[in-house]
Design a protein around this nucleic acid. Structure first.
Lengths: 184, 184
DNA sequence: GAACGATACGGAGCACTGTTCCGCTTTGTC
DNA sequence: GACAAAGCGGAACAGTGCTCCGTATCGTTC
């Protein structure tokens, strides 16, 4: 069996998660590693030891929220009158999550190697949920059946990139996209 | 009247444009300034003197193509049977332009100060064209009338971000978006 | 074609960031 | 208390944007 972790390591990991969460809010998920290290009061080596890539840190910080979003999918499907409504509500949750995390949508598309596994994590966790909603809506004849979960999620993520202002509300365009999904 | 420009300055500006075009193809519009300088065989100071910000260089390299895209708008409107078809064709041109310039769509959304004026240039040049197409289609009752050119262009630009592959074709989602535009 | 002021050039230098690496410290155990 | 293993800190290196100024080149004037 693996040896128990040292108490200082456990403590530092928690400290780091809290610090990263605070810094992400303040400076976005692209914040300099040094800034997170300073916020946590640890050295940079400590961050890299616990979270070898930036994606690991981002995933750790947002894991609960992502999983909660994943869990909401089946619930919405069971509760809503139509599968399309469930899909729309789930997309709302997804969008709410993305737009409140500065730079996260951008990071999801970044080809920066430090973010490589972020893409994969989101896809693995939320992809099946999106697939279920999409399939249900397609089976009910509420949306066309030739759209894949991957492209829908990526499209939605892309539409969330950039600072929203009074001239650009990602939700408006995403609503348009979902309308386009329906039989024409 | 302003004094004539020095011949070496004129020559260098042309050399730089050619070099930048080549490097943008190879390494994207985010390529290091040093790489462009090396390609052109000039010092970095020379680049910054001619093109103070990266956006200036990008605009200079792509000016002709952007203007040609802008010019196509009215022509398509005059030639096509319906305003919606004209809009769709124009969007195709816009998308073709964006997806063939690695990193350009990303740059358009970047809040990096070096790209700040790029956004403005695209908006100034293509915004009115998009507005005309959108208005014509709305007047013909072919699309809803509550969508602004800015949000449409930005949405399309966003959908073009990231490497297209067999799982993600920006054109598919943009077609969906345009379909959503017709929904009343 | 020589001299000269204006213009432009080159690249060293600074600031900032990601990432690695290794000597030092802390922890848990005996 | 002593010891090995685990963990820590931050100096150091590499890549990049951008500035600044000594030097080189150009165009003009005589």
């Amino acid at each position: 069996m693996p040896p128990r972790k040292r108490s200082d390591a456990v403590r530092n990991e928690q400290t780091l998660l809290a610090a990263a969460a605070a810094v992400f809010v303040r400076s976005g998920v692209d914040a300099p590693i040094r800034e997170i290290a300073a916020e946590a009061g640890v050295g940079m080596g400590t961050i890299y030891r616990h979270f070898p890539t930036r994606a690991d840190l981002v995933v750790a910080v947002y894991r609960h929220q992502v999983e909660s979003c994943a869990a909401a999918g089946p619930e919405l499907l069971a509760a809503a009158d139509s599968a399309f409504v469930a899909l729309r509500r789930w997309v709302d949750l997804f969008v709410d999550f993305l737009v409140t995390k500065h730079g996260l949508a951008q990071a999801l598309q970044s080809d920066d190697s430090g973010f490589a596994s972020l893409h994969a994590y989101f896809l693995d966790t939320l992809g099946p949920v999106c697939h279920a909603l999409l399939t249900a809506a397609a089976d009910a004849g509420e949306v066309r059946g030739d759209v894949q979960p991957y492209e829908l999620m990526r499209g939605i993520g892309n539409l969330c990139i950039g600072q929203a202002d009074e001239r650009y509300d990602p939700r408006r365009l995403i609503a348009l996209l979902l309308d386009g999904l329906r039989w024409t």
